[in-house]
């Protein structure tokens, strides 16, 4: 007698928990052949607001951690991703990628996480400096995390795209609410499981699946979101984000040229300059 598979229920990732959408809605994730792979939670506007709230409350802890500590946590993420390599390859293959390309994407994603992990205790040295002011003052500029960052993840590549946008946001100590690839959302939730089993504190990364067009406006308008990574937004979505950003002067990051760069980390920081007199 054949054994019945135990299928996974895909849910959201908010505040270190895996809730269903409060709306009780779901939508189908469709494979390369058009078959329904799974039903994904379809996040509501309230789910998004809840996610922003927990991201805000997680901010002080994550931003206040040392670079060394954040680097170790992000490296630990790479370790847990490595563990799930086969699962990711499987999921990417189901969505139409050939197996070899899927393997390459997963490997590149893990390696990219390692690359960014190594920046956590260094980027300040690249982006900050003493300023030689013309007077008896100590004057230093340092990058600080911008705050709560909304990430509109690229539709594809579903895993590498997400890791490429997520890692530079996390390195300097931001917390985030991610709108996952709408077409291929499964790897994002598997990534959430990897994050959950690493040492990323609850609320630092929150991942929502659903209809981007339903959620992007709420994210863009939200008064407690400091920046939006629009690297994965389509043209009209980008305009909507830039319009919403006006309410609280959000930073909208559109830079999508470099695949990995310390200057993508820089895009999610604020430069703080501190002056102090020298004297007896």
């Amino acid at each position: 007698m054949s054994r019945l598979d135990v299928k996974k229920t895909y849910k959201l990732y908010v505040g270190g928990k895996f809730p269903r959408s409060e709306s009780g809605r779901s939508y189908p994730a469709v494979g390369g052949d058009g078959e329904v792979l799974a039903r994904m939670a379809r996040a509501s506007r309230k789910d998004l607001r809840d996610a922003v709230r927990v991201a805000r409350s997680a901010l002080d802890g994550w931003a206040g951690a040392t670079g060394y500590n954040r680097g170790q946590v992000l490296y630990r993420v790479a370790e847990t991703l490595e563990d799930r390599k086969d699962t990711f390859v499987e999921q990417l293959t189901m969505t139409g990628a050939n197996r070899q390309a899927a393997r390459r994407e997963v490997a590149a994603g893990i390696d990219r996480m390692v690359w960014y992990a190594g920046w956590a205790d260094k980027f300040v040295q690249i982006l900050g400096n003493l300023n030689p002011v013309a007077g008896p003052f100590f004057n230093i500029s340092v990058p600080e995390p911008t705050g709560v960052v909304g990430i509109v993840a690229p539709e594809a590549p579903a895993l590498l795209g997400l890791i490429s946008r997520l890692a530079p946001v996390l390195v300097p100590g931001n917390t985030t609410v991610v709108l996952a690839s709408e077409r291929h959302p499964m790897p994002a939730i598997t990534l959430a499981e990897a994050l959950h089993s690493s040492d990323v504190p609850p609320g630092v990364v929150n991942i929502l699946t659903g209809r981007k067009d339903e959620l992007i406006g709420v994210l863009a308008d939200h008064m407690d979101v400091n920046a939006v990574d629009a690297g994965g937004a389509a043209g009209d979505q980008l305009t909507r984000i830039q319009q919403g950003a006006v309410h609280n002067v959000k930073r909208v990051v559109t830079m999508n040229g470099p695949t990995q760069s310390p200057y993508l980390i820089a895009a999610f920081t604020e430069t703080k300059t501190v002056w102090h007199p020298k004297g007896l």
Partner: peptide
């Protein structure tokens, strides 16, 4: 974006100036 400790309203072309939150984005100087 700028913190003056035991001084205030000091400016210098080498020193970046600009805000957090609704005080704007980008820096001038440095």
């Amino acid at each position: 974006g700028v913190v003056w400790a035991n001084t205030y309203n000091k400016f210098d072309p080498t020193s970046p100036f600009g805000g957090y939150k609704e005080s704007g984005f980008g820096r001038e100087g440095g």
